[in-house]
Amino acid sequence: MKKSFFSKQHQILITDPMGDQNPITIQVLGICSALAITTQLANALVMTLAVIFVMISASMIISILRNSIPNRIRIIVQLLVVASLVALVDQILKAFLPDASDKLSVFIGLIITNCIIMGRLEAFAMGNKLWESFLDAFGNAIGYGWILVAVAFVRELFGSGKLMGYQIIPLSWYDTMTVDGVEKSFVYFNNNLMILPPMALIVVGLIIWVQRSKNEELIEND
């Protein structure tokens, strides 16, 4: 039986990793980058685009080569494909988005070690056709990306009062107020804790909490 081009099974490949099979909140993969580059929304977006590109290209390349890759060196081949794609992204960023490249610095290189990518290559692209591999890669990259963007949104807004570098919280809120003739109280402070790495994990933890309370099937019974 020939499956349709975008059947129910195909849709699940995209929707699952965005929700109930999310690589970050459910499988807890790729946490390191979620922690490191989510202080600013712009960085999270560039990182997301980079991961989408690397993930989709790597999955498609591996899927095409899957029947010719010698079994004994398959992990090395996967690593080689991912590493060269990452090197490519790094070069392109350096040439066209130098400021983003400076800020993301080592984290672009660390996409190589992003467990989500190697995980999907080994678990999915090695055994599935091109179109399915593309959808699976796209789904997982988006699933990773939206968490990254959500965390960065919260951290930049409350940590710096900005979004994409633009001031969102009115500057007048930061003014000192004169109370009883003494200038002392403040209306609003940026929450500096948001800028620090632990807050990324706390925000991810909150997302996991919301997600599991909405879908009780996700709660482990032990």
């Binding site: 081949v77 060269s84 070069q91 350096k94 040439a95």
Partner: peptide, 28 residues
């Protein structure tokens, strides 16, 4: 087969990356 595969793979990727790096050199 394993060696041949590995060698071809490395050559293709090596050339690809070297060419990209060279082409983007002026911009960088």
């Amino acid at each position: 087969y394993t060696f041949t595969f590995a060698i071809i793979m490395v050559l293709v990727i090596g050339i690809l990356l070297a060419v990209t790096s060279e082409l983007l050199q002026p911009r960088k």
